[in-house]
Design a protein around this nucleic acid. Structure first.
Length: 972
RNA sequence: GCCGCGGUGGCGGAAUUGGUAGACGCACACGACUCAAAAUCGUGCGCCGAAAGGUAUGAGAGUUCGAUUCUCUCCCGCGGCACCA
């Protein structure tokens, strides 16, 4: 009987045709069933074919959507194409085919490759972003943005890619290079359209909290939005000769350090620089510096390791509003023009960059924050008197560069055997260095010390001084000495009993020290740097002794500043000087500009005239002039102004690749609607997308843009939800077996077509889901794939066991039946839960366990086999359909009801539990579920293999964990 | 530098309110079937050890009857941000 062999070639095509014919995957319109909207990030049509990695996400959504359908949901699982944009156009240019044609061809090829995998897409909802019926609505959204003032023209310098010959958004630049082609990006001033995404920054950030998204993607978005809370503070300028009023606004997140400001820095582009201009005595030098800064590329400028440069603006001073000190003003390119106010207040003592700058140009460094520690092992106690003291910690280093540490013999400061620097009090009339010398002499006897440094940072420590019965607040100064020689005075016996002193090599010191403040000092002894942490204020007038947090607002108010929030997110540069994109639906009319100068002659294309079609052209190569190729098509460009009827010209820039994908998920709900972007009843039923699956690389572009547009559409009443995608899952890449990315370049590409030819679509699907955790990158291995194929063959062979079952039922052993039943219900539970949670690998592993168990028994019944097939159906739709029908079922398995587990039946009657002695497993016994704790404990302690471990020793206690173990703890 | 995630056999990976580490799969070894091979089936398979047993989840410490799981320190890998004040 040839039908006894599993032949994927015979069955896969057959069922794919049948499913299409019977339309079993057709999504119902608004229905009473509970909806489930599951979406793949639609593919970008660039021209390269699929490799085995591409369908991984699609297989996952296919599995989930199939289960949901069987569970009775009305499932929307659509597919479409992102077709506009640079890569598709570049492919067209390379192959010398018009993009309209190449895109069509590539879509066809793509669809063929998808179809053989056996997906359950409802193809009647297919969309294509380059279809005028689709991009009409992309243009419509733009008009709405324009209407609401969220789209505007700008002439600011933007990122320009000299290879792709177009302007780019911030998001399209990676480390100063064009994300697409890798070319170094230039700054270029040009006219462009910009979307005000920054208006939505706060909502984009705050609403992340309500999303069921991977942590890492939320984190990326948070970083990208880059919120910081701080203060804007004004510094008055002082110029005795000119007597004019000017001020500089700075943004800082650390207004608590205001008293430590020792100079201001402006970015070279700051407008004030040119305003002051030639009046400054060293204007020539300044101009020079500005010129140099201009020449520097973006990456050069933002390289953190680069040495600081700058020039002082001589002849003027600024006044620190907190303490009225006059401070110099510099320009330096480490201050960026487009963040904050383009100017900073420099606090070298507490900011790393300002510190470096101050060191280089010899500017004063003033500490205003003290680090503050509370000794957690010995914290201050309630109701005790607080005594203030000055303390010195002394670091003594010998000629070998080793550092002296004290190894205390008892408990000191409530701490068991501290290892510390030498510690002593500072008397009232003493300075810290003298106190340090005295302490060294008293405690360890060294006579000849060279003072190396006194650290600029004082730390404040709070603890309970047990020997005195008081709480202590101590300001700790750290003094570093070198030893000139080893000459010593005799040390009192009392001192010797307290501790040993030892010299420790540099690398070991940090490992030995076990008190916090000494570790803090050690950090600064070795590398001079700023203290950027928080603490309590000093040298700050009336604010002294407040802590950083509470003083931020107070100081800001004190100097008349205001608390403000800044974001790193920039507005979205939305024009591209390229052919293959949605034309921006705007007309420029000179006549209108004259009659209404505020409107600048910008006339939106009336909605009824949408879509503004992308004209068919012969030449679509980018021009590089800053104009799109569309500008050359005079027939298209020259139009009658819809407002005044005069002669006008079309906007020739096109939208970026990310436009169409920013709202496509809405169109699937209502793909053919000619009157609206989406019918609101349908939108209310389907929104939001319940589950969205795609690559993590879209974290800071597509996923931010789509959220932005969605929120805007919410504001104008088009959609009803705050967020487009409720739950998001990232797909992990499939790498080639050599560990590299699959690419033509490496010649390591595996095509799904070939795999399906040899192993079948079902094996491919099962394998890709079994490879490992779904969101993790894994290497392809054809070897490993044979495991999945074998598994399916086993399932196929089980058919015979079920056929013969009914005849021989009488002889079947009851016990076997019960065991299979328990495992069956456990499997239903696990597979159902695992699929929902995207743990496909363990779902399949459970099915494998079940099949292995079925193989061991003589017969399985029809019911059991049917359940197994249904559990497997989402993963392997073809083979399960074939077997299901061969059991006599008339309807497709894919619309059969999903199995439901019975919790009672999932609990096994027998359990193997471990017997441990002192936490080590020494034996295992089988217990019945009805046995009591006492019985089991007794059994365990009397068990023969256990006696040799417990013999002659007392049992201290017995720990019992139901269903798991008994742990016998022996006494001393 | 900051933030997030992770580190388990030869390999992919299981195991979470702290409770039998290595499920499942691959590879490998031996055996059965076969003239033979493939397929299939059976047995074994972390490391050391003949066994008894010991030892083992990046390293070190801690808490616990018991730690892959919790705490601390450190090392390594991946991702995001980065002269963002």
């Amino acid at each position: 009987m040839s039908t006894n062999n599993y032949n994927h070639k015979k069955i896969e095509k057959k069922w794919q045709k049948e499913w299409a014919k019977k339309k079993i995957y057709k999504t119902e319109e608004v229905s009473s069933k509970e909806k489930f909207y599951i979406l793949d990030m639609f593919p970008y049509i660039s021209g390269e074919g699929l490799h085995v990695g591409h369908p991984k996400g699609y297989i996952a959504t296919d599995v989930v959507s199939r289960m949901k359908r069987m569970q009775g949901n009305n499932v929307l699982h659509p597919m479409g194409y992102d077709a506009f944009g640079l890569p598709a156009e570049n492919y067209a240019i390379k192959t010398k085919t018009n993009p309209t044609i190449s895109v069509k061809k590539n879509i066809k090829h793509f669809k063929e490759q998808l179809e053989i995998i056996g997906f359950d897409y409802d193809w009647t909802r297919e969309i294509n972003t380059s279809d005028p019926n689709y991009y009409r609505w992309t243009q419509w959204i733009f008009l709405k943005l324009l209407e609401k003032g969220l789209a505007y023209e700008s002439y600011e310098p933007i990122n320009w890619c000299p290879v792709d010959k177009t302007g780019l958004a911030n998001e399209d630049v990676e480390n100063g290079r064009c994300e697409r082609c890798g070319a170094l990006v230039e700054k270029r001033p040009m006219r462009q359209w910009v979307l005000k995404i920054t208006d939505y920054a706060e909502r984009l950030l705050a609403d992340l909290d309500e999303l069921d998204w991977p942590k890492s993607i939320k984190e990326s978005q948070r970083n990208w939005i880059g919120k910081s809370d701080g203060a804007e503070i004004r510094f008055k300028l002082k110029d005795e000769r000119l007597k004019w009023e000017e001020e500089i606004r700075v943004f800082t997140t650390r207004p608590d350090t205001l008293f430590g400001v020792t100079y201001l820095v402006l970015s070279p582009e700051h407008p004030l620089v040119s305003t002051l201009g030639a009046k400054l005595p060293n204007w020539e030098n300044i101009l020079d510096y500005i010129e140099q800064a201009k020449k520097r590329s973006e990456i050069d400028r933002t390289d953190i390791k680069k040495e600081k440069t700058g020039v002082e603006l001589k002849g003027i001073k600024a006044v620190n509003p907190a303490n009225k000190e006059e401070i110099p003003i510099w320009i330096a390119d480490y201050v960026l023009p487009d963040y904050g106010t383009g100017a900073i207040m420099a606090v070298p003592a507490h900011d790393e960059r300002d510190f470096q700058f101050a060191k280089k140009f010899n500017l004063p460094i003033k500490q205003v924050i003290e680090a503050e520690y509370t000794d957690l092992e010995n914290p201050p106690r309630d109701g005790k008197e607080n005594v203030y003291r000055k303390i010195v910690h002394v670091v003594v280093q010998n000629k070998k560069g080793e550092t002296m540490l004290l190894f205390w013999k008892g408990e000191v400061w409530g701490k068991r055997k501290p290892i510390s620097f030498l510690v002593g009090g500072i008397e009232d009339d003493e300075n810290p260095v003298d106190a340090a010398r005295r302490e060294v002499l008293e405690e360890v006897g060294y006579k000849n010390l060279i003072h190396k440094q006194t650290l600029p940072f004082i730390a404040r420590v709070h603890f309970y001084a047990a020997h005195k019965g008081v709480n202590r607040t101590a300001d700790v100064t750290c003094v570093v000495f070198g030893l000139e020689d080893e000459e010593k005075r005799e040390v009192s016996l009392e001192e010797l009993e307290k501790h040993d002193s030892r010299f420790i090599s540099e690398g070991e010191v940090a490992k030995k020290i076990n008190i916090e403040d000494d570790l803090f000092f050690w950090h600064y002894i070795n590398r001079p740097t700023a203290y950027v942490g928080t603490g309590i204020l000093v040298n700050s007038g009336e604010f002294d002794v407040l802590n950083s947090e509470e003083s931020k607002k107070k100081i800001t108010e004190f100097v008349g500043g205001k608390m403000v929030t800044k974001y790193k997110l920039r507005d979205w540069v939305f024009s591209r000087q390229r052919y293959w994109g949605e034309p921006i639906p705007v007309i420029h009319c000179e006549k209108c500009a004259l009659s209404n100068p505020a409107g600048r002659g910008i006339v939106p294309v009336p909605e009824k005239d949408l879509p503004v079609p992308l004209p068919k052209v012969k030449h679509y190569e980018p021009t590089g002039t800053g104009e799109s190729p569309l500008a050359a098509i005079s027939k298209w460009v020259n139009v009658k102004c819809p407002h005044c009827g005069g002669h006008a010209k079309r906007e020739t820039n096109t939208m970026p690749q990310w436009a169409g994908s920013s709202w496509y998920y809405l169109r699937y709900m209502d793909p053919k609607n000619k009157k609206q972007l989406v019918d609101s009843k349908k939108e209310k039923y389907w929104a939001p997308v319940d589950l969205y699956v795609g690559g993590a690389e879209h974290a800071t572009r597509h996923l931010i843009y789509a959220r932005f547009w969605h929120k805007f559409l919410k504001d104008i009443g088009v959609v009803s939800t705050n967020e487009p995608f409720k739950r998001l899952q990232s797909v992990g890449l499939i790498m080639a077996s050599d560990g590299r990315k699959m690419s033509k370049r490496w010649g390591n590409v595996i095509k799904p077509d070939n795999v399906i030819e040899t192993f079948g679509a079902d094996s491919l699907r099962v394998y890709e889901m079994f490879m490992g955790p779904f969101d993790q990158a894994v290497s392809w291995s054809t070897d490993n794939m044979t495991g999945s194929r074998r598994f399916l063959e086993k399932v196929w062979r089980l058919k015979i066991k079920h056929i013969t079952y009914d005849i021989k039922h009488e002889r079947q052993e009851k016990k076997e039946d019960a065991k299979i039943e328990t495992l069956l219900h456990q499997s239903i539970k696990k597979v159902t839960e695992d699929i929902s949670a995207f743990r496909f690998n363990t779902a399949i592993s459970q099915l494998m366990i079940f099949v292995n168990e079925c193989e061991k028994v003589e017969h399985i019944n029809t019911e059991t086999y049917g359940v197994l097939l249904r559990l497997l159906a989402p993963f392997a739709p073809h083979i399960t359909e074939e077997l299901w029908r061969s059991m006599g079922n008339k309807e497709s398995i894919h619309i059969a009801p999903w199995p439901v587990f019975d919790l009672k039946k999932a609990v096994s009657l027998e359990k193997t539990i471990a017997i441990q002695v002192n936490g080590k497993v020494r034996a295992k016994i089988i217990v019945l579920s009805e046995e009591t704790e006492a019985e089991i404990k007794k059994k365990a302690i009397e068990y023969k293999d256990i006696l040799k471990w417990t013999e002659g020793k007392g049992v201290a206690r017995i720990v019992y964990v139901p269903g798991r173990l008994v742990n016998i703890v022996l006494g001393e």
